[in-house]
């Protein structure tokens, strides 16, 4: 009921709308967002922290093996009381699993051995068994997969990143329907903010890399300038 969700009304009304991929940076910076989130009860803050750490790439520890990460994700899913949030996390982890499989196969790796926990979702066995198929046998479940494969094969990392973030954004938006002023709304806002932040960073990194490439190309043809005596 809305009258027991009131701590979230002020918070949600104080957060600016995020227009994904159309802004150079999120409309609220990390510091201000964290300031606003301090108004939440400690238990909610803890859940948000765990949720962000599992879902956001920013917090993924590349030194940690898949099994440890999956165990952490499973533990979080058991603790999350909200079915909406649990569904959002599951969908995000599934997306990450499928794209990881695509990337691993693209890199020439073999299918994960049987009995090893390597991903998340209901189609792990099907993906493993269909490793050699272009769509890993699961395009019917993940409509974005053919486009992702195409971008990966073409080496177009920007298009791939954009496609994945757009897909994840649309999934989150569907979960957010009907949640305006409750904890789910806050958590899903946080996840969308993470995506917008990631895209903004990615964009800046990509721009820097491209600038460096252009600079190198331009300087390669430039005449040598004799040093002053």
């Amino acid at each position: 009921m809305i009258w027991v969700d009131q701590p979230y009304v002020t918070l949600m009304a104080s957060l600016p709308a995020i227009r994904f991929l159309t802004e150079k940076e999120p409309p609220i910076n990390r510091q201000r967002l964290m300031e606003r989130l301090k108004d939440l009860p400690p238990a909610d803050q803890e859940t948000l922290r765990e949720l962000t750490e599992v879902v956001s790439w920013r917090f993924v520890d590349t030194t940690q093996d898949d099994a440890a990460f999956l165990a952490r994700a499973a533990a979080l899913l058991e603790r999350i009381a909200s079915p909406t949030l649990a569904a959002a996390v599951r969908q995000r982890l599934e997306l990450r699993t499928v794209i990881a499989a695509l990337r691993r196969r693209h890199a020439g790796e073999d299918a994960p051995p049987k009995g090893v926990r390597w991903g998340f979702g209901p189609h792990l066995e099907r993906i493993r068994a269909s490793w050699s198929l272009p769509d890993l046998g699961v395009a019917a479940f993940y409509p974005w997969l053919p486009a992702a494969k195409e971008a990966l094969d073409a080496g177009d990392t920007v298009a791939l990143e954009r496609l994945l973030l757009e897909t994840a954004w649309q999934q989150q938006a569907r979960h957010a329907e009907g949640h305006e002023f409750d904890f789910e709304a806050v958590a899903l806002y946080m996840l969308r903010w993470s995506m917008a932040d990631r895209w903004a960073r990615y964009d800046a990194d990509e721009a820097r890399r491209r600038f460096a490439e252009l600079l190198d190309a331009a300087l390669a043809d430039a005449p040598e300038i004799p040093e002053a005596a």
Binding site: I2, T10, M12, A13, S14
Partner: peptide, 17 residues
């Protein structure tokens, strides 16, 4: 009372932004 409280809290939040 409940309606004004809900809308009022949203108004306070909006004022921050």
């Amino acid at each position: 009372a409940i309606g004004v409280a809900i809308a009022g809290q949203a108004a306070i939040g909006a004022m921050l932004e």
